[in-house]
Computed example of a mutant assay.
Amino acid sequence: MEIVLATGNLHKKEELAEILSGHRVLLPSDLGSSFDCIEDGETYLDNALIKARALYQVVKRPVIADDSGISVPALGGAPGVYSARYGSEEAGRMLESPERNDFLLKKMEHIRDRKAFFVCSMVLMLDDYRIYTVQETFSGEIAREPFGGGGFGYDPLFYLEEYGKTVAQLPADVKNRISHRGKAGAAIKDIMDRLESM
């Protein structure tokens, strides 16, 4: 199946192309389309559906959209659905990933309970009325400082005790097997494989 991702993020394309092996993954730019939409939903699923519907109206072919973020219970669940914009209001501009990581570390400076979890809500939209949704999580804790050069976003801060490493220190194949996006993508791939064999 050929699928268009509701993102301009090349990292996400590379990650999902590996997870969805056997299917062709495109970005809107690969079709000569630009894509941007306002993600103003209250939940990850709301935002994933907003993106899927917006892109489907542009390309009129199967799309995948996801919304993901990191939640820290000790911060009342923040950043949550605002993960990509975390700290930007205070800074008066959109922060880059390392700046967002620094902002989160400052918020966590005096907090002992460093448990955290990622959430990924993923939507496969085949047409206006054929929509599949999956939501997965990935548990860990916030490291005291960033480690590793792999992954993207909050990966350098997300420490996994069972591996003794942050997600940014893991090989891509391991991350893609155990992460929130990896698990959601695997479930979506199962659906796509089944649909293709029908």
Rank of each mutant, 00 (worst) to 15 (best):
H180C: 03
G153I: 08
T133F: 09
V134L: 03
E2A: 09
R181V: 01
K165N: 03
T166I: 00
L49K: 10
G150L: 07
L49T: 02
S139K: 14
D128P: 05
E136T: 09
I191D: 03
I178F: 09
V119A: 06
H23F: 03
H180V: 02
R177A: 14
V63L: 07
R130Y: 08
K51E: 04
S179Y: 01
V72M: 06
K175S: 06
Y86Q: 12
G148H: 10
L5M: 02
Y82F: 15
E162V: 13
G8R: 14
V58Q: 13
R100M: 15
V72A: 08
P28L: 01
S83K: 01
L104C: 04
M125S: 03
G22V: 05
E161Q: 15
A17I: 03
K60S: 12
R100L: 09
L10E: 15
V25S: 03
R85N: 02
H23G: 01
R114W: 09
Y163P: 11
V119W: 06
A184M: 05
R144I: 10
V72R: 05
N176W: 07
G87N: 08
D67E: 10
H110N: 15
L75S: 10
L26V: 03
R144A: 12
D193F: 12
F35N: 03
A168V: 05
V174P: 00
I64M: 00
G76D: 10
G76T: 08
T137S: 14
A17G: 02
L104N: 01
R93M: 01
G22D: 06
G149L: 13
S121M: 03
A172D: 12
L55E: 01
T7R: 12
I188V: 14
S179L: 06
L20N: 01
A143H: 11
C37F: 11
F138E: 08
I38F: 11
K106V: 05
A6W: 07
Y82Q: 15
A54Q: 09
V59T: 11
E109P: 08
G149R: 13
E89R: 14
P146C: 07
E18N: 11
M198A: 15
Y82I: 13
L20M: 08
D193R: 13
R85E: 07
E39N: 10
C37K: 07
M94Y: 13
R53N: 15
G76Y: 09
D190S: 15
T137A: 10
L27N: 05
L16K: 04
R100D: 02
G80N: 12
E15P: 05
E90Q: 15
L126D: 10
Y154T: 09
L95W: 05
G80A: 13
K51A: 06
Y56L: 12
P73G: 11
Q169A: 04
S34H: 14
